[in-house]
């Protein structure tokens, strides 16, 4: 599915009908259903969605990582340095190792727990380098320094020698960024980069990421709850809800004129927060993934709910401009 206007060549990541199931004792829960999207070189894609929407699972799935009680379906095609990989899922771990970190770099949600607590940070960055660089006594350490600088760190030597617990959250964030960049990936996935950072540190980090995007043409997938951050720094936006994409398109378009009532509700919450007004929370709860209801997932929480919404599930409607939404009664059409 190609929903971009300024398509520039081959996509880097092409996700088709991805499903993610959680296997329980005796029951399976479908967490993500038929999710499709593409990422092109140099893109900056934002993904927003409520807590528990499955964003982190999605990030891991993009490089074929999962816990053992999770099942992935669909296909994910990737472009690597020297060609195209058709569907990573049937690949062996040994082959996947060659892709991970090199085609797609990923920074997990909690930087503190994604570092080995008993190895120095520099050593861990070095471990993530491609074998030829890692084993070289000169190039190895030099690359570590380079990566730490690239990630925007200053006291490079001290950080390289430090153990993870000796660094602040913001510094660790950058160290894990350095780890993720070690294999020279063309896409970087960043899961909640700024959840625990203060505004200034957040700005600094996003600036670094933006620089990487401009200088290395590194595509970014940024997962966040923070609509403001998404608005400022991303160019494409995917709005997820209960395992589905409800709306996607160019960030400015989607946020200036949302089509889906859910996106609109999110924006209103955000604006209320900003202007210190009384919050207008979206009524109701994110539906339990266990009970699958007929009709639109957002259904009963929606302000524009109609009878039809409770009976059949809307498909994604695509607009030539690259926008798509999943709603029978999009906002702009009714207003």
């Amino acid at each position: 599915m190609n929903n971009r206007n300024n398509t520039s060549g081959q996509p880097l990541i092409d996700v088709r009908e991805l499903t993610i199931d959680i296997l329980g004792r005796g029951s399976t829960t479908r967490l993500i259903e038929n999710l499709s999207f593409t990422v092109y070189p140099g893109d900056i894609v934002g993904i927003v969605g409520e807590s528990g929407a499955g964003k982190s699972l999605l990030c891991k799935a993009l490089i074929g990582l999962k816990h053992n009680n999770i099942r992935l379906g669909g296909t994910i095609n990737l472009q690597k340095q020297d060609g195209w990989v058709n569907n990573i899922f049937p690949m062996t771990n040994r082959d996947l190792e060659k892709l991970r970190g090199k085609t797609i770099g990923i920074q997990f949600q909690e930087p503190a727990s994604s570092m080995n607590p008993v190895l120095q940070c520099g050593r861990q960055i070095r471990d993530a380098l491609p074998a030829i660089e890692r084993k070289d006594k000169v190039i190895g350490p030099a690359r570590v320094v380079e990566l730490l600088q690239l990630a925007g760190l200053e006291e490079v030597d001290r950080v390289a020698r430090a153990y993870p617990h000796e660094l602040s959250g913001g510094m660790l964030q950058r160290v894990t960024l350095a780890c993720a960049l070690a294999g020279r990936p063309r896409v970087l996935i960043i899961d909640e980069p700024t959840a625990a950072l203060d505004p200034i540190t957040t700005y600094g980090l996003m600036n670094t990421l933006d620089r990487l995007n401009r200088e290395l043409n590194l595509a970014l997938i940024i997962v966040s709850h923070d609509l403001n951050l998404i608005k400022t720094w991303t160019r494409q936006l995917i709005v997820m809800y209960s395992g589905q994409i409800l709306e996607q398109g160019a960030t400015t378009e989607v946020l200036v004129q949302p089509y889906h009532p859910y996106t609109k509700a999110l924006l209103e919450c955000e604006q209320a927060l900003e202007h210190n007004e009384e919050l207008k929370p979206i009524p109701g709860q994110i539906p339990s993934l266990l009970e699958k209801l007929a009709g639109c997932r957002f259904g009963d929480r929606c302000s524009a709910y109609q009878v039809r919404c409770g009976q059949e599930e809307p498909d994604l409607t695509n607009e030539p401009g690259g926008r798509s939404w999943r709603c029978f009664y999009p906002v702009s059409n009714t207003e």
Binding site: K60, R94, F108, N116
Partner: peptide
């Protein structure tokens, strides 16, 4: 988590 993260960086098993 750090093992998962190490796998994500492409470290060999």
């Amino acid at each position: 988590d750090y093992i998962m993260a190490a796998r994500a960086r492409g470290l060999s098993e």
